[in-house]
Design a binder for these strands. Structure first.
Lengths: 64, 64
DNA sequence: ACTAAATGTAATTTATATTTGACATTTTGC
DNA sequence: GCAAAATGTCAAATATAAATTACATTTAGT
């Protein structure tokens, strides 16, 4: 399942996948894969993404 | 940094580490390590733990 | 005190998250 | 339409989450 909430939050900040990747310290492919939804990031990375996008864990990674 | 919030939530349900591990489908050592704090579980596991303990991601894994 | 269950911890192995490098396609601005 | 930037995707390598096995210590019940 795609993570559209994350994609929307990134768009709201006007960050490219590359820019967000640089901010949180991973590669562009990792960000792309998370948005695409076919995997399972670590909580530490999720927290870094939340901080970068000014969202909470529940907002970006909560159920449904 | 220890995850005392998770330890407390588990205690509130009166689950042993082994019982929680069985419910979420990992080993006792994995639960122990997360509570002990010296690592970085996946979001999928965090969500399973939250569901088992009736807590949200932010409550158990959010920025203190 | 004795016992059993629960917890802390460590070494080794296995599964998988993440990286790297590369190329194709789509989108955006000019 | 064209060029550049952004995105989608893939195969192979690396880093690390999680499993397995095992043992020591602590805690709770009798």
């Amino acid at each position: 399942m795609k993570n559209l909430k994350m994609k929307a939050a990134r768009a709201a900040k006007d960050y490219s996948q590359q820019q967000l990747a640089d901010i949180v310290g991973v590669t562009r492919q990792t960000i792309n894969a998370i948005e695409k939804g076919d995997y399972n990031p670590t909580i530490k990375l999720c927290l870094a993404i939340c901080k970068a996008l000014d969202k909470t864990l529940d907002e970006l990674f909560g159920e449904d």
